[in-house]
Design a protein around this nucleic acid. Structure first.
Lengths: 211, 211
DNA sequence: AAGTGTGAACAAGTTCACAGCC
DNA sequence: GGCTGTGAACTTGTTCACACTT
């Protein structure tokens, strides 16, 4: 029963799902793995194989019913639930993140924001009053938080992560360039634009490409 | 000569390099693949194999001289050069990006910023006067730009990308949730926090983990 | 003695190709 | 007839294990 599903597969499902949302809005009701593949730059076999880890969602000779596949993917990914998210660090990046409407639209509800600076504490961002980081530990004992987004300055990233984990937060999105150490049961993803730029400059430097 | 180097390897090099920068600051002069591996959560064999694609940088029985390996990696990745970067779209996210000091520190110089909104055009961010997007096409004929960072709203992402490519920009960092189509010789990386969150919720939903 | 560099073994992930079903 | 689902073939990427160097 518990066949281990490759992480790369999990990472592709949200991409499939995003595209399905778009074509559903355009009124599309059925799509084949072939068409999906062309749009998403993935082979049709890849898509069929990926989906086959979870069930048989297609209609043979026909393709996938957009709405049905969407429902399946949202169920698999847990997007049929609401998730509570907090943002720690409300510098320029944190404020941009906290005020991005896309999170709420996708079921990621930013319920609280924390910062150290007295200049920021008490201000309102996206309808949320910024609290002191001092409140964080205690707040986590009282209300459940699924995901913590860390946008503090680099040197505090590990401390904040430790606090979050101690408070029962199971997933962390780290916008800091610091590499954070977490126990393996904690979900962690890092967003570090510098690393992206640096792998791109490799290719710009070595234009005997292949990519 | 032109052995094809796996993309995953290229993506790891900046991580190795970042760690070497850190330990160099701490005064470390030599490090073994074993120690590197522990810190970066990679097997020592992986590190040695990755580096072996590019040369023999280690000293047998000793490890790697931090400064030497750093120089090699920076040379490989093209980090010994300066890169010119422009930011298109100066909403909250674009302003956060444009004012992040990390780019300059790593040799990525933001030389211009563009926006459509008359409220933003003419304002100064990080010492740069925001120009009209109307100027972009013409500017690109006059000065060389290596990398474009797209932080406009989703619906304009493809248009901006097309403009950049027409103007000779070879690499694009797309902060937009839109999937952009580019010719294969153009470097493209996407930063979409929603996709990260959605793959994390898969694991939160299916805590029979393995991760 | 310690630790690299690397072919060979292994594991993971992708694509093929076709049986099966609508 | 067209397209899915999936074992099997293949390709890519990782780890092993040891000869080699200092």
């Amino acid at each position: 029963m518990t066949m281990q599903i490759p992480e790369v597969v999990i990472d592709r499902l949200p991409i499939y799902r995003g595209f399905l949302v778009r074509i559903k809005e355009e009124g599309r009701t059925v799509i084949s793995s072939h068409e999906l593949g062309i749009e998403l730059d993935v082979t049709p076999a890849q898509i069929r194989k990926d989906l086959s880890y979870f069930g048989r969602f297609g209609k043979q000779g026909k393709g996938y019913v957009v709405q049905d596949l969407l429902d399946e993917l949202e169920n698999i990914l847990g997007l049929d639930k609401q998730w509570s998210v907090i943002v720690i660090g409300l510098g320029r990046l944190g404020r941009a993140v906290a005020s991005y409407p896309g999170f709420k639209e996708e079921g990621f509800n930013i319920t609280s924001c924390y910062d150290v600076s007295s200049e920021v504490i008490g201000t309102t961002i996206n309808g949320i009053v910024v609290q002191s980081i001092e409140d964080l530990q205690n707040d986590l004992t009282k209300k459940h938080v699924d995901i913590g987004i860390i946008t503090v300055s680099s040197e505090y990233a590990q401390n904040v992560a430790d606090l979050l984990i101690k408070g029962g937060v199971a997933a962390i999105l780290n916008y800091t360039p610091s590499r954070i150490q977490v126990p393996k049961e904690i979900e962690l993803k890092n967003i570090n634009p510098i690393l992206f730029l640096q792998s791109m400059t490799y290719h710009l430097t070595n234009l005997n490409k292949g990519n």
